[in-house]
Design a protein around this nucleic acid. Structure first.
Length: 273
DNA sequence: ATAGGCCTGACG
DNA sequence: CGTCAGGCCTAT
């Protein structure tokens, strides 16, 4: 699914197109994707609202509407958004359509339906626990090395900790593996074993990998496309993710895949200790 | 900490 | 047919 770089790419495109437009009407054909309030209330309250700004928090898109409402969308594993001219036929797995005041439609497509959307009071994310308990934004100016160290308490495996959205926002399986490779840290290391120098490299790596991935407009492994339907450009620059058996570009050792925290984890056994 | 569940589709 | 997949929640 879209991780922080992919969601950021879509957010930038939405922010270019949507502010100032109104949502005339919203149609939901798979109500369970609306997790708060009911799909019925969600649509009723959205109708007529003006989109003021599009933001992002972790892997969530946040559409700030007038009347102090925040429309949030999480793309799950296979969700995508696209802006289309008024259409009479929609792609397979279209579940939500927002009619916009300029005649276009914003459509939400999601084959695996792991995504979700909700309508919250601006700034009050308590109805969605995942959003309310989200850790700091890793690309924010105040995300310091000391701040990171403070988030990495306990004895969890570092790989699991990077995937834990309560510790740090926005990192998923692809970028967790890429970050650990750049930081030369083995995914099975435990937090309490990390040295100050490990944390320093980890902090740099988190920011560098995510920034580079955003510059590359994200990674397309299979499904991901941006608002324009374009695939990402960063998948070719991945060093370890889904490259088991290939030679490590740093040392030539064969990239290995293991299962950590229930997720496939790709790493170089020679570079990452 | 781990497994299972939610879904569909691609691939072997 | 079985296995796997970029996420996240719940229960054990």
């Amino acid at each position: 699914m879209p991780e922080l770089p992919e969601v950021e790419t879509i957010k930038r495109q939405l922010q270019r197109e949507l502010p100032g437009l109104r949502i005339k009407r919203c149609k939901v054909t798979l109500p369970r994707l609306v997790t708060y309030p009911s799909a019925r209330t969600y649509c009723r309250k959205i109708a007529g609202r003006r989109i003021e700004k599009v933001g992002r928090r972790g892997k969530y898109l946040i559409f700030e509407l007038d009347d102090e409402l925040d429309l949030i969308i999480h793309l799950g594993m296979t969700g995508s958004l696209s802006l289309v001219e008024s259409a009479e036929t929609y792609p397979r797995h279209t579940h939500i359509v927002f009619d916009l005041s300029d005649g276009r439609e914003l459509i939400y497509v999601d084959p695996r339906t792991f995504g979700e959307t909700a309508l919250l009071i601006h700034g009050d994310y308590s109805p969605r626990r995942g959003l309310a308990s989200m850790g700091p934004e890793p690309l924010a100016a105040d995300f310091t090395r000391e701040g990171l160290a403070a988030r990495l308490g306990g004895t969890a495996l570092i790989k699991a900790a990077l995937l834990d959205q309560r510790r740090i926002a926005g990192i998923g399986n692809i970028y967790a593996d890429e970050i650990l490779h750049r930081a030369r840290i083995n995914p099975c290391r435990r937090l309490n074993e990390l040295t100050p120098d490990d944390i320093k490299r980890l902090h740099h790596s988190i920011q560098e990998v995510l920034r580079e991935a955003i510059n590359g407009r994200g990674s397309t492994i299979s499904d991901y496309v941006d608002l324009e339907g374009e695939k990402g450009g960063f998948q070719n620059l991945l060093k370890v993710y889904r490259r088991s058996g290939e030679e490590c570009q740093t040392c030539g050792e064969s990239i290995r895949m293991v299962r950590v925290a229930g997720r496939s984890s790709h790493y170089c056994p020679s570079c990452q200790k």
